[in-house]
Amino acid sequence: MKITKVTPLMLDRYLLVQVETDAGITGLGESGAWGFLEASKSAIEKFGRYLVGEDPLRIEHHWQYMYRFSHFRGAAIMGALSAIDIALWDIMGKHFDTPVHQLLGGKVRDKARVYYHVFGDTTEVLTEGIVDAKERGFTAVGHLTPFLDEDRDVPYFKTHADKIGDAIETVRGYREAVGTGVDLCIEIHRRMTPTEAVQLGLGIEEFHPYFFEDPVTPDNFDEMEYVASKINIPIATGERYSSIWEFEMALSKNAVQYVRPDVCLVGGISGGRKIAALAEARHVGVVPHNPLSPVSTAACLQIAATAPNFALQEYPIGEDVPPKSNMVTGMAEHDGNGYLTISDAPGIGLELKPGAIENCPETPREVITRLHADGSVIDQ
């Protein structure tokens, strides 16, 4: 069997890849370099020129070849490599008529617990979203910020006391709205300095968050270690990391209690399973990052199925416009009790729908970020 064609596909806000073979088997993957999909698309095309004529089943060899041929990497390159890796695993599963998780050693669980995305630019809207998620059967809610999803066109300003105090009271309101029947995954989106993050972490500890996600930027592992050492809430981080070595550095510093590998950014299923194993050796949980399409969800579920230390899966259906069901067949669905059933279909279990490109036209992401009231750039 040989690879005959590698095609990047821009659908809605997502970059998928199709890898075709002379055996009539097609694999589907996705890049997680969402801020720079155009660059990642070019990298897919470049890798494709190498892959045509190659055996698709030599996944690890191709991974090493693409990763190590150049002196330069980064998110756009790793997103492309990840998309291709997922597609090659999809081909291998279809070739052997078995799900990818069977090729990785078989399932250790039949379903994956998920957390629902909640969005809103007011505390009231976010709180209503948490209550709605509970009523729909979800037992965990994420993308849950105490700072609101405000428009990036609106300049930001709060005094320190207001910033920390309002955030604490917001989390208090979330907990009071749903009791202890829903786990709260508190998302900071790297908006705080290390000292601010410690103050907020100590202030919301009594509400027992499931985790405190990305309190500071990922640029300095020592800063995350500092925050983790000062608070009693598990730190979740890793969605911006693009290699197993970054995760190893964070783990070695005890800077993370839940790793958040993006399977579409860290080297695909191959990279994701290695990161899960690194975390398992330290009794650290795995919460795969997944703000993307159903292809990403299906790839993440292969890790969820096989990693003993899997904890929770991000499930991004809170902003399902246009419906992700327009893209593929076979997508995982919520069972009404907080879980996704893990498919036993061959490969990752998906097929691109006829007309998907027409039904999900490309929506480019423009360069826009939020400014402080004084005109300087802030993180959001």
Rank of each mutant, 00 (worst) to 15 (best):
K5L: 08
V6M: 04
V6W: 06
T7R: 09
L9G: 04
L11E: 11
D12L: 03
D12C: 11
V17H: 09
V17F: 09
G27P: 04
L28E: 12
G29F: 08
E30N: 02
G35D: 01
F36M: 05
S42D: 14
K46R: 01
R49F: 00
R49L: 03
L51F: 04
G53T: 10
G53S: 09
I59N: 07
I59M: 02
Y65F: 15
R68N: 14
F69C: 10
R73I: 08
A76V: 11
A80W: 12
A83H: 04
I84G: 11
I86M: 15
A87T: 13
L88V: 05
W89V: 07
G93H: 13
F96W: 15
H101M: 01
G105Y: 11
K107W: 13
R109V: 06
K111C: 01
H117L: 07
G120D: 04
T122F: 10
E128H: 07
F138N: 06
L144Y: 07
D149R: 04
R152F: 02
Y156L: 12
G165L: 08
R172K: 15
A177F: 02
G179T: 06
G181S: 03
V182G: 01
L184Y: 08
I188L: 14
T193H: 10
T195R: 13
E196F: 00
V198C: 14
G203A: 14
H208G: 00
E213R: 02
F221S: 04
E225C: 12
S229C: 09
K230T: 05
N232I: 03
I233Q: 09
P234I: 02
P234H: 05
T237M: 04
T237S: 12
G238K: 06
M249R: 13
M249C: 01
M249S: 09
K253A: 10
N254T: 12
N254A: 13
A255P: 04
V259R: 09
D262N: 15
C264I: 00
C264R: 05
R273W: 08
R273G: 01
A277L: 03
A281D: 14
H283P: 00
G285S: 12
G285N: 11
V286E: 07
V287K: 03
P291E: 01
P291G: 06
V295M: 07
C300W: 09
T306E: 00
Q313C: 11
P322V: 05
N326E: 14
G330Q: 06
M331T: 11
E333Y: 06
G336C: 01
G336Y: 05
N337W: 06
G338C: 04
L340F: 15
D344I: 06
P346F: 03
I348G: 04
P354L: 07
G355Y: 15
C360W: 11
C360A: 10
E362F: 14
V367N: 08
I368V: 11
T369W: 15
R370L: 13
H372K: 14
H372D: 14
I378S: 04
